[in-house]
Amino acid sequence: MVTATMKAMTSEQLTKKLLKNEELFILDVRNTSEYDNWRIEGGKIDIINIPYFDLLDGVDPALDKIPNGKDILVVCAKEGSSKFVAEQLVEAGRTNIYYLEGGMKAWSEYLEPVKVGDLKNGGELYQFVRIGKGCLSYMVISGKDAAVIDAVRMTDVFEQFAKEHGVQIKHTLDTHLHADHISGGRRLAEKMNAKYWLPPKDATEVTFPYEPLEDGDVITVGNTEIRMKALYSPGHTVGSTSFLVDDQYLLTGDILFVASIGRPDLAGKAEDWVSDLRKTLYQTYKNLSEDLIVLPAHFGQVTELGEGGKVSARLGDLYRSNPGLNIQDDQEFRVMVTEHLPPQPNAYQEIRQTNMGKMTPNEEEQREMELGPNRCAVHDK
Score class of each variant (00 low, 15 high):
Asp291Tyr: 06
Leu295Asp: 06
Val311Thr: 11
Thr303Val: 14
Leu288Arg: 00
Leu292Thr: 12
Gly316Ile: 07
Ala297Trp: 06
Gly306Ala: 00
Gly308His: 12
Glu304Gly: 11
Phe299Leu: 05
Gly308Glu: 07
Phe299Ser: 03
Gly306Ile: 02
Tyr319Val: 04
Gly309Glu: 03
Val294Pro: 09
Leu292Lys: 07
Gly300His: 13
Leu288Ser: 10
Glu290Leu: 00
His298Ala: 15
Leu305Trp: 01
Val302Thr: 15
Glu304Ser: 05
Ser289Asp: 09
Phe299Thr: 13
Gly308Asn: 11
Asp291Pro: 05
Gly316Trp: 02
Val294Ala: 05
Asp291Thr: 11
Glu307Gly: 00
Lys310Tyr: 00
Leu288Lys: 04
Ser289Arg: 00
Gly309Tyr: 09
Ile293Met: 12
Ser312Lys: 12
His298Thr: 13
Glu304Met: 04
Glu290Ala: 01
Gly306Lys: 13
Lys310Asp: 03
Leu318Ala: 07
Glu290Gly: 05
Pro296Glu: 09
Leu305Cys: 05
Leu288Met: 05
Asp317Gly: 06
Val294Lys: 05
Leu315Ser: 08
Arg320Trp: 09
Arg314Ile: 14
Val311Gln: 01
Leu315Ile: 03
Leu305Asn: 08
Asp291Arg: 13
Ile293Phe: 06
Lys310His: 12
Gly300Lys: 04
His298Asp: 13
His298Met: 07
Glu307Ala: 10
Glu304Arg: 07
Asp317Ala: 05
Arg314His: 10
Gly309Pro: 05
Val302Phe: 15
Arg320Thr: 15
Val302His: 14
Gly316His: 08
Val302Met: 15
Gln301Pro: 03
Val311Phe: 00
Leu305Ser: 02
Ala313Arg: 06
His298Ile: 04
Val302Cys: 03
Leu305Pro: 07
Gly308Asp: 09
Pro296Phe: 06
Ser289His: 00
Asp317Val: 14
His298Leu: 02
Gly306Val: 03
Glu290Phe: 00
Lys310Pro: 01
Thr303Leu: 09
